[in-house]
Design a protein around this nucleic acid. Structure first.
Lengths: 95, 95
DNA sequence: TAAAGTAGTTTATTTTATAAACCTAATAAA
DNA sequence: TTTATTAGGTTTATAAAATAAACTACTTTA
C-alpha cells in the first residue's frame, strides 16, 4: 500500500537541497543556505550526509580568495530523488 | 521558494495514518497497524501525537469482548494534510 | 487452569535534526 | 598596523523523534 520513504531524502533540508540540485548544473554553499534559509551548521551536516550517500558531489575551491564549496547532484542522487517522489505519491494521492 | 513542512505530518508513519484516515470514515488500531506494517508500540505513540495535535479523534471501545480503538480524522486534520501536500509540491515539482 | 494470543501502553534506546560554539582567513576600521 | 568584523564554513552539544523492547490486562484455547 505505502512505499517506504528513503530516510535520507525524507528530511526537510536534505530534500530541499536535492530538489535545488536536480534543477541546476551546480550550486554553492552560500546559494543553498540562502535558498533554504537553513543555518550554516545544519546545512554543512546535511550536505555531508548527502555526499556520504553518494547523492551529491562536493568540491571545495575558491571564488577569488574566498572559500567556495560547490555541490552537484549525481546520477544516483537523481535516481533516489525520483524514486522518493514516486513513493511519496502513494501517501498523498497524486497521480 | 520552499514552503515549510508541518513536522507532525512529515513522519512516515503519521503521514501513512493520516493518509488512510482521510479516505475512510474511521479505522481501528489493528487495521492501521496492518496497513502501515508498523509495530503496535510505534503506532500507539504516533496516534497519540496526532490526537494531541487535534488531527484525529481516538475512541476506545470494544468489539465483542476485545478492546478496540477507533480513529477518525478531524476537520483540522484534513486541513493540515491538504496544506502539507501543497507544501510538498514545492519540493517535488508536482503541479 | 495453564498456556498462548490479542490489543494495546509505557519505557528505554538509538537516531536525527538543529543550533551554538568554534575555527580560519579576508576585509574594513581606528 | 593592530584590531574588529565579516565570510565561509566545521565540529560539538543538545533537544526532539522514531522505534523497539518490555510490560499490562484481558481473552481464548487446549
Amino acid at each position: 500500500m505505502f512505499k517506504s520513504l528513503n530516510p535520507l531524502l525524507h528530511s526537510e533540508l536534505r530534500l530541499a537541497v536535492v530538489s535545488i540540485l536536480v534543477g541546476v548544473e551546480s550550486a554553492d554553499f552560500v546559494f543553498l543556505r540562502e535558498q533554504t534559509g537553513a543555518s550554516a551548521g545544519n546545512l554543512s551536516v546535511q550536505i555531508d550526509k548527502l555526499q556520504k550517500a553518494g547523492y551529491i558531489t562536493v568540491e571545495k575551491g575558491f571564488k577569488g580568495k574566498m572559500p567556495c564549496t560547490t555541490c552537484r547532484i549525481t546520477e544516483q542522487g537523481i535516481a533516489a530523488f525520483e524514486e522518493y517522489v514516486e513513493s511519496l505519491k502513494s501517501y498523498i494521492g497524486v497521480r
